[in-house]
Design a protein around this nucleic acid. Structure first.
Length: 142
DNA sequence: TTTCTCACA
DNA sequence: TGTGAGAA
């Protein structure tokens, strides 16, 4: 649960903030991971003295980061993508950029799939040769 | 509890 | 792409 600013005045905006442990709990990551993401420039929580104060906005970014991770994007790619959300919203260029990223990822996965298929074929070949060899050796001794 | 740094997989 | 330890 978010902590709220202490004693907000009448009509004052109550900005929800979160401690590092709050977010770690909520998203089931370690506090260590959150500091790591900050080092990588994925999030930029404010500081109150030494402590990190995460805003609702940081929370949203974290959500995006974790989604990107599930999609198989690298830290660098995630950084590029979520930084788009800072700029003016709904830019056509941003959507195109995101589409590019998706297509790149799909292409990479397809390449991997083809590599795996090729490797499986080669393994089958080797296996067949070995089996034959073994059988021939057996004949010779009988 | 949280911070940082260094080492490690 | 993270984790663990140690010290402040």
């Amino acid at each position: 649960m978010p902590r709220r600013s202490p004693r907000p005045g009448k009509g004052e905006t109550v900005a929800a903030t979160y401690g590092i442990a709050d977010l770690a709990r909520e998203f089931d990551v370690t506090t260590r991971t959150l500091r790591f993401y900050e080092d990588e420039g994925l999030i930029a929580p404010e500081r109150q003295g030494q402590k990190r104060i995460f805003s609702a906005r940081d929370r949203v970014r974290l959500k995006l980061i974790l989604r990107g991770k599930r999609l198989g994007f690298s830290i660098g790619e995630i950084r590029e993508i979520i930084n788009l959300y800072d700029a003016p919203p709904g830019e056509v260029g941003q959507i195109r950029f995101f589409l590019d990223k998706i297509r790149e990822r799909r292409a990479a996965l397809e390449r991997q799939r083809d590599d795996i298929a090729a490797t499986l074929d080669e393994l089958a070949d080797v296996e067949a040769r070995c089996t034959t060899q073994l059988r021939d050796l057996g004949k010779r001794h009988s």
